[in-house]
Write a protein that binds this DNA or RNA. Structure first.
Lengths: 255, 255
DNA sequence: ACATTTGTTCGATCAGGTCGAATATCTCTG
DNA sequence: CAGAGATATTCGACCTGATCGAACAAATGT
């Protein structure tokens, strides 16, 4: 069979299950036949997995279409709430948005990518809900760079090997050595900037959140370049970020 | 073996996988041995499932402890965003909170339970994040009752059979016939009240959200009894709820 | 350093996941 | 509304691979 010979000690049936889940998301719901055709497995196999998914609430059925169920939302909220920095990070983001009027974020990392954990839209009330939960490369994200700067060099190398350094704009850092220089500077100055490295015309600043010396996530403030000048970032905004992290440190110290 | 003889055409290996996931949540993370002991299966079996979960990002490993991963959050946000009423419901909740100053909710239902989909804390800024994503019985929730009232009698019966009518306070409706009378009244008046039926001293009012004649969820406003009197609910608050649903109807009609 | 606990790997076995075909159910079209 | 075509579900048989127990490795505590 054309499958990878060694998925090294996992359980293939589970892989199939997750293939179904993944495809169900990519297709925004689908029927048994379509899933089976695309995965090139028997309809009855797909049906078996869907039956279990259904019973467990991870999938729902509308007519003949299967869709991912809100059990994912339930578990997702639980996982977010379990993050050590979530409760205090949430208050910090609320405060940052109030003080700066700009879009503010709490992010963390997992599996070598940055994940938007909590955000506020700023004065313009940008809808953050479409961004929440998404995973992005760390090298073009201010918070992501702040996190990367606090990982070991081996970890950074592993992440770059795994995910690469794709360009988003012409300012994106796509060279491994340039990235390492940048991370060195971030460590020295204690904050990371994003000058249109992700989206043209969007600038941001991020600071790391560490607990007991271990990097747990980052706070960031982002906005259009005309309001989020480098000077404002490194001045007023950075002051607020520093205040926010100080408060988180205190909250967690007395946890 | 003591397992149910007929799990009727699902895949048992998947059941085990979800048992692991569920237990990992109940224990807030655990090691291989503990999981294997509690589930009464071999350590190597648990290890196999965890390996796949790990590769897929649904589980992370801190030292020797396994924890549920943020992939659940990623998928959860996706599923919420897919709900037809989410975008417009979100704006409605924001508006309700602004207008009433009280805690406001968008809920929906799946598998016979109500699920908090989006909420705002009101003037007192109650932390809604611990509630988001949780599933509750529908019969002691104003939004839940509003939804129940728009399901067929067979569906209501099925739900009551499956989940029962447990009491939360002495005001909870625990009798099937009394519930059906209440649902009848809710259909007539177009809104559902919750007078300390869930939590002592908390009152709420909910209205159904239907799309193309099908019930999709509910909006509700909740607060302490001294502010959320029956009169205020059925007067000022109901007016705001009606305005909110009207706007949702318009938004969705022109989708 | 040793004992104990926990995590991971390995080989053998037989439950059960997978497949393909048959049947049931739904949908469209004339 | 009948019948054709598509889709979902069920069934039986095969043989992969999920499971187990034991052996090994790594980590933790004393």
């Amino acid at each position: 069979m054309a499958r990878e010979p060694d998925r090294s000690r996992g359980i293939q049936s589970d892989e199939t299950l997750f293939d179904v889940i993944e495809l169900l998301r990519d297709l925004d719901g689908a029927g048994v036949t379509e899933l089976a055709d695309r995965l090139e497995i028997a309809k009855s196999t797909v049906h078996g997995h869907l039956t279990t998914l259904l019973r467990r609430g991870f999938v729902v059925k509308h007519g003949r279409e299967y869709h991912l169920g809100l059990r994912f939302f339930e578990y997702g909220q639980y996982v977010r709430g379990q993050l050590e920095i979530f409760q205090s990070g949430l208050r910090a983001v609320d405060r940052l948005e109030r003080e700066t009027g700009e879009m503010s974020w709490l992010i963390t990392h997992q599996n070598g990518k940055a994940i938007y954990v909590y955000g506020r839209g700023g004065k313009n009330d940008i809808n953050v809900n479409t961004i929440l939960g998404t995973r992005v490369h760390m090298h073009y994200n201010s918070g992501g760079k702040a996190i990367l700067a606090h990982l070991s060099e081996e970890e950074v190398d592993r992440i770059v090997d795994q995910h690469g350094l794709p360009a988003r704009t012409e300012n994106t850092i796509t060279d491994r050595e340039r990235l390492k220089d940048e991370l060195e500077r971030i460590r020295e100055q204690g904050y990371a900037l994003n000058l249109s490295e992700d989206l043209e015309g969007i600038q941001a600043i991020g600071v790391p959140l560490t607990v007991d010396g271990e990097i747990q996530g980052a706070l960031s403030v982002a906005g259009p370049a005309h309001r989020m000048s480098k000077d404002r970032c490194e001045g007023e905004i950075l002051d607020h970020l520093r205040a926010a992290t100080d408060e988180i440190d205190v909250t967690i110290a007395y946890r």
